[in-house]
């Protein structure tokens, strides 16, 4: 199945895309989506553990499976300077 992932912030700026379309197999988890994103854009590898990933507007455990129709969003990590 195809799934659309909305990109936020510098992910959108650097990729030049608002959304990405991925092929997802039944049973794939959110980690798969993150891995696919990193595979396409290795420049974001260092963010991998810290990205804000939401499914249907809720942060979810990345081991959770993706279903058809889910709305996924990937945002850069929380910034922590002051």
């Amino acid at each position: 199945m195809k799934i659309t992932i909305k990109l936020i912030g510098r992910y959108k700026d650097i990729t030049g895309k608002q959304e990405l379309l991925f092929d997802i197999l039944s049973g794939d988890t959110l980690w798969h989506a993150v891995d696919e994103f990193i595979k396409r854009y290795p420049v974001f590898e260092k963010d991998k553990q810290f990205m804000i990933v939401t499914k249907n507007n809720m942060f979810t455990n990345l081991n959770e499976k993706i279903k058809e129709g889910d709305n996924l969003t990937i945002a850069p990590p929380v910034v922590s300077g002051g």
Partner: peptide
């Protein structure tokens, strides 16, 4: 909103 939060400042 995040399962891991980077400690970088």
């Amino acid at each position: 909103i995040s399962q891991n939060i980077s400690s970088s400042s």
